[in-house]
Each structure stands twice: as C-alpha cells, then as structure tokens.
Design a binder for these strands. Structure first.
Lengths: 240, 240
DNA sequence: ATACTTATTGTATTTTGTACAATAAGTGAT
DNA sequence: ATCACTTATTGTACAAAATACAATAAGTAT
C-alpha cells in the first residue's frame, strides 16, 4: 500500500469573500487586500496585487474557525455570517508567474499546490473597521461591478460567491447581515435590487417580503425626514 | 513572516457519496466499502469498518479528476454525474481510536489531519459493476434508510449529500442519472418518491414534470405487460 | 366477453407572481 | 392655514403555478 503514503505537500488555505453594503452609496462591495511585499522597498521585482483575504489554516483549528480568524484579524469583528461555499484545488491555481514573487515570500515551497476552501461573509460596511493586517499592505472596498484583476484564481472565487448570494438571497437572510438593526422596507428593497441587479416593484416586493417569518414590525417610525416617515422593521433572531 | 511557513502536514482527500437506484427494489442506496486490512490475518487488532470510497489526491490531479478516478477505480465507469458539495476539515475528524488501525496502515503520519472534499455521484445500480479495489475488501450497497456506523465522519458526509439531493432533485436531473435511457413516467415518479420519501399525486406529478425542458416523448410503448402499456420517455442531452 | 391491472387525463380551487397608480403623512415655504 | 414637495403605503385585476381529487383507457389472461 505504499501508493497511499504521501510524498508531497499540500497547503490548505481558507479564502474569504467578504461582501459589504452600505445604504448611502447603495452598492455591494467586496473587501480586497493589497498584498504586502517581503519588506519595504527591498524587492523591486515584487508587484503587489489585489486579492481576497485568506490564510493557511493552522494545525488545531477547524475550517470554520480559520475563516472566523481571518475575518477577525482583518476586520476586527466577530460573529458575522460565514458560510463555506466551495473548494478550489486545481494543481495550477497558484502556478501563474505573476503570483510567484508573493508566494516566495510566504512559503517554504512556493511551487507547492494550495487547496483553498472558500467562505462567504456578509458585513455592514459601517460596522466594521478593516485594518491592514500582517498579510496586507492595505485593504480596500471595491464595487462588485468594478473588480480588478486579482491574484491567483480569486476572480473565479468571487464570481462563484456572487452566484450563490444571488440565487438564494432570502436563504442567507441578507437583510439581517447587511442592514442596520432597524430598517425600512425601502432600505431592504434597495439591498435586494443591488444584489439582484434589477429593479423591483414596490407593491409586489412588499407583498412577498411580508411572508418572511423573520420580519417583524417595530413600534417606531422615521423622524425628521422631509417626507412621510417610514415604518421601521427588524429581523427576529433565528432559533437554532 | 515566518508565521506563514508551514511546519506540519495536511493530507487532502476526496470522498465520494455514490447514490444508486434500481427500479426493481425501488430503493435509493449508497455504495460502501469494507475497509481492507494491512494484510490477510496479520493484524488481529484491525477491525474493518464500512466507509464511503475515498482516497488522497494525487499531486497532479484536480479535485474533480480525483473524484472521477476514485469512482472509476471502484465502479469501472466513466463520465458519471459528479458534484462537489462540501469540504470537511475538523482537526479531530480522523482522530477517533476506532480509525487508528486503518490509518496506521495507510499513512506515514496516522495522526495527521485529513481534510476531505466530498463529492456526490449518481449512478444506475444495474449499469455499474463495483469491484473491490486496492483500498477495499469488498463493496456493498446499503439502503439509505439502513446505513451502518461508518468510519471517520462519513455518516455526517452521507447525511449532507442526502440533504442536497432532496433539496434540488430536478436541478440534478436525477432522472437522467438514475433511470435507464428510456423510462415511463411511473418509473420517474417512483424515483422522485423514493428520494423525497413521500408520495406524490400522479396527475400533479405529470403536470409538473412535463414542464421539464429536457423530457422528450419517445415513439415507443411498453410491450408484454399485463396492463395498459406505458409510454416511454427519455431525457435530452444538456447543451453545455 | 369479462376480470384484472396499471396508464392516462381534467376540473375546480388555492396560492403565488406580475403589472400597474392613487392616496397618505410628513417637511418647509408662503 | 394652505400649498408644494417627497417618499411611504396600499389594492385590484390577471396570469401562472400548486393542490386536491376520480373516472376512463389499453393492454393481458381467462
């Protein structure tokens, strides 16, 4: 049975697609990091690229824990929505020459294969404070409509995350994750429109959303707006 | 940046939940292997368990290729429906003492963590010929209603696969995978009933299934049956 | 011709999705 | 107090899809 004895190394990482929303700009954005070089100005060859945050898993942590750690390191928040959605493991996914410099500063064996388990995270942009961590020069939010060329196969990973959230927005109860604790139905509708990238009819949207078992009407209205004040709503906590 | 240099080993495997169906027994079954010991009768300690087929990935193959290889080794078939559905990587998932003996015959480092990418495969039981391979003493089909205790976390993996096929049977076009090339609507309905574990109304089932763009009516009927012969149907090939 | 078995089909009802516009409730200006 | 302005809120008619329910059809065997 020698066949099955491992004689090469697999790196395993977790990459997080962090989707953020704020009502003012009314845009869905993805959190990117600018890769950090080996040391300031020591390598003229190193061309930092944008990437989604990710890291190799540690020996004693589960995949879910790794995703939470990466997100916490980066955004200083805990307890966010996090969902594993796909694992990318093509042998060549880290073999592109453009990625070689960065890998050589980070890996004992820069050519070794890296299998990455991808997670989706939903956050309110105004609730978190992304900070460049030990693995990032800086962090930036970018509209999902203007995503630059990313390192490795990260464009593919982001695209798959967007497919998933668009397929089942109500399943992810995106409202709970991406809106303030109290919100109006117009805010909720704006969010759905941004995610689905199409306009929805107000009356029909309200009819359908009111079937949502988690939506509750608060005893509070908007104040100080230059128009009819809107009713506030909230989401119930799920049971689990 | 020493933090990120890997100083431990991750094994990465692919495990396949192979679901099979045959119309005679009208049961959905899962393909299990009986683990093979190090050598016949040399280890009195080794207690073989049932498990789903899986194997460590090879250095040059993608995850999809690994799944196809495992299935081909086991079942001597190619080109079956295969879908990645979840990755299991808890640090303790291979640490149960009951699994230690088997691992010690298979791994340089039996205590090392194994991250496994799980795939779902759908097969027609009468079309494949499972053969005990280099990693199995024997293979058996077991009804999904009577799954024994399996090695590692394989019961959890099978349960998740069943959740997925039940959620979206039509998305997996289970008919194409689990029925003969030509079939009657009653056969198709039986299959759906077994998967969803509930009875369906004949008239309503037929109304809904006939919206399926892939279903075509053949120019052929049953022969030699003791009742009104049924029309045969088939599925169109998907475009892709 | 009859008994038997499974295949096939329709209708009424409910629920859900879609298209579409008038009225309500605040603010600030006059 | 009235009016202009802005966004919030709601209903109705129609189409499409889901559900409940039973009679007739087409073979075989006797």
């Amino acid at each position: 049975m020698k066949d099955n004895f491992l004689n090469y190394n697999n790196y395993v990482s977790v990459d997080c697609v962090v989707l953020g929303y704020n009502e003012v700009e009314n845009k869905l954005q993805v959190l990117l990091i600018k890769q950090k070089g080996p040391a300031p100005n020591t390598s003229e060859l190193f061309k930092p690229q944008f990437a989604i945050p990710g890291d190799l898993i540690k020996e004693e942590e589960s995949l879910d824990e790794a995703a939470a750690r990466i997100l916490e390191d980066l955004a200083n928040v805990k307890g966010l929505f996090l969902e594993q959605f796909y694992t990318f493991g093509h042998p060549d996914r880290v073999k592109d020459p453009k990625d070689a410099d960065w890998l050589s500063t980070r890996r004992k064996d820069p050519l070794a294969r890296v299998i990455t388990v991808a997670y989706l995270a939903l956050v309110r942009i105004d609730q978190i404070n992304p900070s460049a961590g030990y693995f990032a020069e800086q962090t930036v939010w970018r509209s999902i409509k203007k995503i630059p060329k990313l390192a490795f196969d990260h464009n593919t990973i982001v695209a798959k995350a967007l497919d998933i959230i668009r397929e089942h927005p109500e399943q992810h109860i995106v409202g709970r994750e991406l809106l303030p604790n109290k919100f109006t139905l117009s805010q909720l509708q704006n969010l759905y429109e941004v995610i689905q990238n199409k306009e929805l009819d107000k009356r029909n949207f309200r009819k359908s959303i009111k079937n949502n078992e988690y939506l509750i009407t608060l005893d509070e209205k908007q104040k100080g707006v230059l128009h009819k004040p809107a009713q506030y709503y909230a989401f119930k906590k799920p049971k689990k």
